[in-house]
Structure formats: C-alpha cells, structure tokens
Design a protein around this nucleic acid. Sequence first.
RNA 1: GCGGCUGUGGUGAAAUUGGUAGACACGCCAGAUUUAGGUUCUGGUGCUUUCGGGCGUGGGGGUUCAAGUCCCUUCAGCCGCACCA
Length: 877
Amino acid sequence: MFDNKNIYIQIPSVQPCASVVKNFMSTEKYNIAESEAKWRKAWNERKCFEVTEDTTKDKYYVLEMFPYPSGRIHVGHVRNYTLGDVVARYRRARGFNVLRPMGWDAFGLPAENAAIERGAHPSDWTISNTAEMREQLQSMGLAIDWSREITTCKPDYYRHEQAMFLKFLERGIAYRKESMVNWDPVDNTVLANEQVVDGKGWRTGAPVERRKLNQWFLKITDYADELIDDLDKLDRWPEKVRIMQENWIGRSKGLQFKWDIVGKDEQIEVYTTRPDTLFGASFLALASDHPMAQELGTDKDGFDAFIKKCQAIGTSEAAIEQAEKLGFDTDHTATHPLLKREVPVYIANFVLMDYGTGAVFGVPAHDQRDFDFANKYDLSITRVISDGQDDELTEAYTGEGTLINSGILDGKDIASAKELIIQKCEEDGSGFGTTQYRLRDWGVSRQRYWGCPIPIIYCDDCGPLPVPEDQLPVELPKDISFDKPGNPLVHHPTWKNTTCPKCGQPATRETDTFDTFFESSWYQFRYCDPHNDSAPVGKDKANYWMPKGATVEQYIGGVEHAVLHLLYARFFTKIMRDCGYVDCDEPFMGLFTQGMVTHETYKDANGKWITPIEYEALVDKSTAKVGPSIKMSKSKKNVIDPEDILKTYGADAARLFILSDSPPERDLEWTESGIEGAWRFINKLHRIVMDYQQHIPAHDTPKPTHFADDINELRSAAHKTINGIAKSIDDFAMNKVVAQIRELSNLIASPKQAENYVKLDGGAWAIRETLEILIKLFNPMMPHLAEELWSALGHNTLLADEPWPVADESLLVDDTVTIGVQVNGKVRATITLSPDANESEAREAALGQDNVKKAMDGKQVRKFIYVPGKIVNVVAG
RNA sequence: GCGGCUGUGGUGAAAUUGGUAGACACGCCAGAUUUAGGUUCUGGUGCUUUCGGGCGUGGGGGUUCAAGUCCCUUCAGCCGCACCA
C-alpha cells in the first residue's frame, strides 16, 4: 500500500505579482526516473497484474510472441510489448480478467555458439540473459503477470513436451524414418523445409546440403486439410498470413493415373491438376531421380551426363530461373490411356521427385512450360480447350473455354470435363481423384545439445523404444564439452548409456534434440497453468482461459513467423486436442502482425558503416553519407539500444513515441526528433495538470448544475474522445489514439485558454473532469505518468485499478453542425445548422452565403442536394 | 511467372456507409521569454497566383449532384511463393 503523502508533487512557482497567465506557465519539469520507479513498485506490491480464474468476469488473454533470451531487448521487443500492454491495460480497465504472461523461448543455437566462442555454459548464459532482459522489460512498466513466467529450457517445462511426444508416438502422429534432409553445414544440423529460405539456412544463410538421415517426424500432412479449412475461422488474422499459410500447405486437387510403357511390364504413375487436358498430351516426363528413369534411360548414350547435369543445378532462385528446360529422350514410349496412341517418354530437369508422383504428362497447348518444351524437341501440339477463336497458338492457352479434340469430353467446360475424366478413370481402374500437398511432414530432430532431449532409447535387439514415463524427464547433462565439432551429446562419455526398458540390456539414448519450434508451439497453454507438475496444462485451467473456440484473444508479433511458428502452433493445438490435452481447435483467435522498426544508416568518409551516435559526434557531417532508413541490424550499425532510451527519456516517452505516427502494422522509423517530441509531450501533460491543480475543486466536489457554453463544448469533446479512443484501440490504430490524446489536451493546454476556462460557469469542475478523463485515456500508453497525475489530483487509489471512463450520452450529440456548401461540386462556403435542419432551412442558409452567390454568378439553381449533417451541393446552370 | 500489400504536403500520417482532403505530429518560418543555447509561449505553413482565383490524393479514362474512397486501365515500390504438373 502506498501513502499519498509520499507522492512526488510539484507545485509550480507562483510569482507574487505575476498575471493569471503566468500562473499557467510553470517551467517545472517532471522527474521521470523517480516517478516511474515509484509506480512500478506500487503495481508490484499490489500485485495488480496477477490473475486467477474468475468466473464472474469476462476473460481476455493477450499474448505477445515470447522473446529469445539473446541478452538484451531490442526496439522490436519494445514495440511488440508496448502494443500488448496497451491492449492489456485497456481491457483490464474495461473490466476484463486479463491474462498477460511472459516467458523465455530459451533453447536455441546462440547459447551453444556463446559456449563455443567464450566458454560460457549454454544454461548459465541463457539464465543470466533472462535475468537481465526481465529487468529491462520490467523497466518498461508492462502489465505482466510475472508469477506465470516460463523458461522453456528448464526440465519443469520440457518434461511435458517429452511426455506429449511419447503420446504422439503412441497415436502414430510421431514416427521415425530415413529420409533426405536439409543439412545446414554451418550449424551442423538439420533444417525443416520451413527453415530453408531460398535454398539457404534461415539463420546462417549457408547453402543447404542434402543428406540422408534417420529422423523423427510429426505428421503435419495428416492435418493439412484441417489447417487449410480452419483458416476460415481465423477472421481476425491478417489476410496476408492466411494466404501465406494456404500457399505453404499448397493443396491441389487432381487425378493420379497410370500409363503403360510399351514393351515393359512397369507402369508410370502420373499426377495432374488438369485431367481435362488429357487428350492434348503429347509426351511424358520423369524426374531425373525417378526410379523408372534409370531403367528407361540407362542403355542410351548420354544418360549419365544428363543426370549429372540435372543434379548440378542449384536450388537457388536465380539458378532455377536461368536453368534451361532440358529433356532426355529415352526412346521409350507410353500408351495414352484413352487415345491408345503412343507418346515419347522423356526425363526432364524441371520435374520434381518431391511433388506428386515425380512424373507428369505434357500438354503443350495449355501449359507454357510444356509449350516451350514441345517446340524445343519438336513434339506435337494439340489444342483441346477452345476459346472460340482458335488461332494458331504462339503461346500456351491457359484460360477458360470449351473442350475440343477430346472425344467424350467435347463440348464440356473445364470443370465438368475434370469431373468426368476422373470418374472414367475410377471406373476402369486406371486412376483416381486425389489431393496433393506441398506441405511435408515436420522433421523435428536436431543434432544439437541445447534443446529438449528426444525421449527415445535404442536397443540393438528391441529397436527404438520410448523412455518409460516414470523416467521422465530425460534431462540434459550439465557437464558438457564443445571441444569437438558436432553434437556434444554424442561425445558425452556416459549420458547416452542406459538400459533397454524392455529387455534390460545395455542401450543408448537418442542424442538428437527437438527443433526449438517445439517449445514455442504449446507455450500459450502452459501460461494457463504454469506450475502444473503432472500435465502440460490442467484441462480446467485451459478451458477457463482457452475454451473451444475462444483461445488467445489477441496474439501480437512479427510477420516473419507466418509459416513457421504460427503454422506449427496451430498444428500442435490440433494434435494436443486429439490426444486429449485441450479442447480447442485453434491457438490464436486474433493475430496482429507489427511492422519493423527502421533507422537511417550512416557511412563515414571511408565508406564504413557508422552508428547514429558516431554520426552525431562527427565534427563535419558533410563527409559522411546518410543512407535510407532500413531494418535495424548490427552489420549496418543502425541499431538503437532501448535501454539508453528508457534511461534518458523514460518508459512512457519510449512507449508514446513507438505508438505515435506510424500505424502499428507498418514500419516505424526511429528518429531522435520523434522520441524528443514524445518526451516533450510527457512534460507538457505533466505541466498542464500541475498548472491547473491549484485552480480546480477537490475530486469529490459535486457536479455543478450549470455550465457555460464553452464549457459544454469542452465537456462534449472530452466525452466524445472516450469512445473515439476506445474504438481506435479496438482497431489497433494506436497512432490515432495518440492523435486524439493530443487533440483533447490541446483544448486545455493553452495558458490563455486555461485562464478563461476556470473563470467560466462550471469551468473549474469541468477542467478536473476533463483532466481525469484524459489521464484515464492515456493510461494504457503512458501508465507511469497517468498514475503520477492521478495522485497529483488528490486520489489515493491506483489508477491501474480504476475503470475506463463512461461517456455521458447527452454530451455526444451536437446541437449544431458545420457543413460545407458546394456549388457544382466545389466547396465555396460553410454553414452551421442544427443537425436535423430541414431542406428549406439549409437552402436558405446556403444560398444566403456571399461566396455561394458569387460562385453561382447569377445562374439558376437547377438542383439542390442536402444531406443532413454532411453536405449541401447547389447545382447551378 | 503467381499471389498479396502500398502509392495523399518537405517528412510520418488522418479522412465511418462516396459528402468541407491534409486531423495529429515532425520539420520549417516569424515573433515573445531567456545572458546564450535548449525549454516554454503566440502565430503561420499543400502548390500556385495578376490575390479574383486556379490546381491538387502515382498516371489515364469512367460512373455520380459529389470520388483519396466505386469501376476500367496503366505505372512504380515493397512483401510472400515459385520448375508444384
């Protein structure tokens, strides 16, 4: 409990013979550091933001993507957590039971790299980083329930994902297979498909190699349909992210069917999304690594050279674009299943073994690539879709049309032709309608130390076996050496040695650890019940905070996780549901993706990158070059350390600046003048309250019965702002929130105005009312200042516990409205009317305007348009 | 190539269902306060002008009494995916 007497209050110095205006011009500054620390302590002691399940209140779960404990927070974190804080504090004020937790995504490679580079143990390095970053986050004044903090590298967290993995194994959701994997040669580990960007490792940027390894997988492909179909439920997700996930899953419907090879017993299975064009097929093409390719091509000259050429082509975007479409004629033919005509079989470098069946049929008339290929190798081109013109094709025709040259399909449209041909193939057994996905199963094994151990034991006789539940968790050994390259768990002298749970013979542990996206796939549940020893989350707790359909109300983070974390977390939620852990289908109902924080870049006279601070320190700035404002990065040296900002300007100024100007979904340019502007506004708000303080009545003074007109207008503006800001926060339009705060404060900020207001009828009371509304409205953005001013106005409650103000409906309606008067569509004057004035009143007022008469230039009114409350348009001619 | 987003003052940006374009800031200009700088206060600031106006939301066209907003077309920038059959 804090004592009101201890509150830091500044009384502006009043000069004996100063004018009244002088009274409203204090120059005292707000002691930011002292005040902010005091209020954080008060919230903390009161445990304001700790929550329990409370069925009497509506609940609201707001979550921001938890940070990786790299050592220090960056400006992106400040933006992310400020946005979440505005939502959390606002919802709390609206009476919601708000869950707003924080934790650490604590497994990951930087910890191992730190161990290799400077000998720190990954665990110590990580834990000390969390301590430092916790302090930094706390200095932002975030409304977080720290009692629910989770750290994913601790056994009390990861033991539950080991148990879940065993459950997945039991259910057939997890499995082991040998497969070609993406190998990052720098990090010495496997990458998931989602982690390969442009043929390179997403973290290291090193070209990814292909290797054959035994890996554990999760069957995300079994959920492909649900993952796509449920995107429709996520109507509070950005369209962009939903489209990206849909494309990533890449569902396509088509026909899979067999072609006979002339003179061979084998058949070639082909997949197509355009079965309607089957009658236009003029060749078959196999992937170079297709099992049949060897058999068909090997006895012909040049085969080996061709295969080599295919494999030499890189996977990078540029290489693919430039790569020529090459084919190798096997001299074999296949029989068209319907036409019974023979078509040549090629091996082609553009056919992918990974997708479909690794074999395609080519329809040159209706596919550009096939068209080019046919021209190159002189293959026939048969048009089967008519556009009504049927001119000679100079390029493939891919539009709508009617089937021609297609036997039974002639005259049909494309959709019904597809249906019919699939039906026919299913009848004669040559093929079947099927769905293909681009999505591949999620390989979760990583050959690293600093991750959650995969709870598997390998026995020479019994094979891979799950670690018995009573032996969980399988903890990482603390004594570990990074002397040798590769996975330290493999080199550990004893850790991997164990006994087979089935036969009792000596056996070895799995030394791979889980992909770190494993931890972040279910943490949203753990926050609901962070100290549960027996289950990842208690169902009662999960069902309170994340019942079926409700889940996390608002999730906030960067768009870079659109197909990584956000897809895995959705998948994990579904498999946890199917294994009985939770009841909900989706983890995040609302998703907001924030933009990046950018900063100008600078180069010195030698063309070397220099920091903003170094640039400012230059004696002669003309020798340096100022570059564009781009995402902050260490290599470009345009990074701003939030801690410096928090120390210099305070948390409120940093928060205010980050919310001002740029809409949160767009990139935000960090500028010195911007943060200074925010800081000045903080001081201004403080000054306004301090200046008025001695002129307004106590907070429990009854409302006067009469207000002067000007005061009514002020009150009306204040009450309108209540609803305006609420709507803007709901819309995530924080830049507009700040604008409205400034607008309202501008009404009372001017010393001249202030002097007037307090003299008017009801003025002093209304000023207090306005100030209190203003303070409550900016509280979610600048909570320290708001507490400070709230107490300065004589309250001894915490503002954090105060409800959102309620707008007085009678003050929301205007008795007059000013609208524009157009003459032939151009605004010539404005008139002020009652909002429900009738047309003849509007006509009289409008036509009486000098500027309107002038613009009409003696012409007649041909038409008079009056939209009450909006506009008058006089059509003259 | 496919899909998506964005184009508004010197800058960041506002603008419910079409209804006074540029709110709110940054910057800049002038004045006041200050020993000075900073702070603070007062006023101004889309472009142009012969001071009547005229022109203005990437370009062109259209619908409408009325278009930043709707339709067609075109250009530019950014993001995602990409030999996906």
